[in-house]
Write a protein that binds this DNA or RNA. Structure first.
Lengths: 380, 380
DNA sequence: AATTAGCACTCATCCCGCAAGAGTGCTAAT
DNA sequence: ATTAGCACTCTTGCGGGATGAGTGCTAATT
């Protein structure tokens, strides 16, 4: 059932044209715009066959053709024009990302903002998940009687803090004792393995009356657990209003609503997080011939979800291109772009790939900067 | 040039009707819907006069009338139907706001979210400006060699922190020395009065080599200054897509763009911040008779900007209802609602007023909770 | 003097129909 | 296998009543 060379060419041309114009593309326009050496009639026959096979659809009789989800899929998997971002862009972006004040979250946030800016679509990023990283430090700082700041430092170098209420009678020294007891008891443990019980056990021998201790321990525990809170950064949400597919305000509103009910997206992305991306081509199956087109094989992995493949209600007219970023050796989070199915996949993927790469480098160099505080020249 | 009673009645009816329906309102509809005891012809004459006077306008010759900015102004200033939020709403909201974990910013953020949710418009809030509050504590916590967390506590009870790079050679004890030197030197000073020079002076006698000291001092200074950073919280931006006035996608997009280029709104609100709101009626002038309608006088102050009165490009079809909140005795920030000119002013104002009041109470009780750590029963 | 009934007039809006145009599918010729 | 030709379909755009809501004006009424 593989497509012959000419069909591929035509499919590619149709998708390209539709991406560019957002209008159904007809046989005549195709030959004139893409210099085919055959007549419109031939193209028509081919297109009819492509429609038969499910790669194209007609909005109505006597309109041009529009790619189906399957058509986009094939396009993305095997026909994708390889694009590269310009040297200047690459440098500007990596410079912008590299002065992110040592803050992992600010790095991710910026990456997201870069993506939406560069692609013109909506970008989404998941904060890194840290449940597999270890507790390194926990400090408690008395702000005033009854209030304290809990600072949690994780092995990943991530610092989170949180204001809490504590018993008024607890003094600064006791607070410090509790904190250092917890720290020495739990340092090196994975976040996953820390429970209220382990926290309590660690602080058992501190000379602080139980009546005061309990609340503090609870807050410490919550603070540690909260260090792993999943967050979503989104940028350029209103970009999608520029596209004709959302010229209907109600549709647009619905999309925005779905997007900004961030819990949904977070959950969805988080579910995909663990499944590693499949190299240069994406997850879903197609029945086109060559699984490894030349040139694209060297790109970092990414995932493309098209139309119905997205299991989130309200985003079925969209495509969702994502990739993961790592911390150390495990997948930490996911970052991606949401746009109309008629997306400039080539451009988006090149940017996503670049971001993935840069992000991984930056994270690695942040970590390295923490272990050995010298050598900063490991920029790619 | 004062309007007689009947004209006022008619104006009010027109505005009410237009707010409800978003469609030009005609004489016939008016008499039937609002039980006037006169005939449509009389209403027509009156409306013609109201148009002459500038309170109404006609979109085209044979359509009904629509309020002009001046019409809305008069409506807001003297005709506003007094609305009160329900007891349940009031309780739910104040309960929601009161468990804001002691965090001022989270309080403001929640207030903003409540506003947009309750009114169905877009809400905007400015973070409190703290430049007039005093530095109370500054701590520096070594995270690892070369990295520290600077924690700044202000008299307002606000805690801000920031990750910074410090010289690798500086050890934890030196860092603490520097911090406590700065703290004892500057505690009690207003943020406004703290400069790099005063910071340096405070830390002069610490036994830390200058070569290491400078960077730390600078970071401390920046952290202190950043405690006063102006932030904007916005909620329900996409609500405005529900209104027919934004059914044109381009207009909608433009509005969203203006709104989300948060710098503009922040600046604008910040400029208005210092001018205190004028009691129950608003800033701009009108020539209606009674300046103090009964019932509305008891409301907290607020400001209404209508249409052209808003000096921000792109929001000229909107109205902007804001109020201020205080910390101690000075105006700390501003919070408000942006919606179509055809806004349910009564409802919005009642909510804004309630929020203002609740916010002030909460802030006061936060402060009180810090001074005397007892008594929590000062809820209104 | 204020109110109202009556009437002519003005426009937006809706709907219908028609022509134009783009695109297709099919068939027959190359 | 390709292509030219042609009939057919269906959307889109446009003009033209018809509709109807609403106005302004005038003259009659209270």
């Amino acid at each position: 059932m593989a497509l012959d060379e000419r069909k591929k060419c035509i499919l590619k041309a149709v998708v390209d044209d539709y991406i560019a114009t957002a209008e159904p593309v007809g046989s005549k326009a195709l030959v004139s715009r893409y210099h085919f050496k055959v007549s419109p009639a031939t193209i028509r026959n081919e297109m009819a066959e492509l429609e038969e096979l499910g790669y194209l659809e007609q909005p109505h009789t006597s309109a041009g053709r529009v790619p189906s989800d399957k058509g986009y899929r094939a396009y993305v998997d095997t026909l994708l024009p390889v694009e590269d971002i310009t040297r200047e862009d690459a440098e500007r972006i990596s410079r912008y990302l590299s002065d992110s004040l040592d803050e992992l979250t600010s790095l991710i946030r910026r990456a997201s903002s870069v993506l939406s800016e560069q692609t013109g679509y909506t970008s989404v990023a998941l904060s890194p998940q840290l449940h597999r990283s270890q507790l390194q430090q926990i400090k408690m700082l008395m702000i005033e009687p009854g209030r304290a700041l809990v600072v949690v430092v994780l092995s990943a170098g991530v610092v989170k803090d949180r204001l809490v209420r504590i018993p008024d009678l607890l003094d600064a020294q006791q607070l410090m004792q509790v904190a250092s007891a917890i720290e020495s008891g739990l340092a090196g443990m994975k976040l996953d393995d820390i429970t209220l019980v382990t926290v309590a056990a660690a602080a058992r021998q501190t000379p602080v009356p139980d009546s005061l201790l309990n609340q503090v321990l609870y807050e410490a525990y919550v603070s540690i657990k909260q260090a792993d809170n999943l967050e979503v950064y989104m940028d350029g949400t209103h970009n999608l209003l520029s596209f004709p597919e959302f010229s209907d305000v109600n549709k647009a509103r619905e999309h925005l609503m779905t997007l900004t009910s961030s819990g949904m997206i977070a959950g969805y992305m988080n579910e995909m997080k663990d499944q590693e991306d499949q190299g240069a081509s994406a997850g879903e199956s197609t029945d086109l011939s060559e699984p490894e087109p030349p040139g694209a094989a060297s790109r970092p992995a990414y995932t493309v979800r098209i139309g119905q493949e997205i299991l989130l209600d309200g985003l079925q007219d969209c495509s969702f291109v994502t990739t993961t970023y790592k911390m150390g050796d495990y997948v930490a989070g996911r970052i991606g772009v949401i746009g109309p199915k008629r997306m400039t996949y080539g451009k988006v993927i090149s940017h996503i790939s670049f971001i993935k790469q840069t992000l991984n480098e930056q994270i690695r160099s942040l970590a390295a900067g923490r272990d050995r505080t010298e050598d900063h020249e490991d920029e790619a």
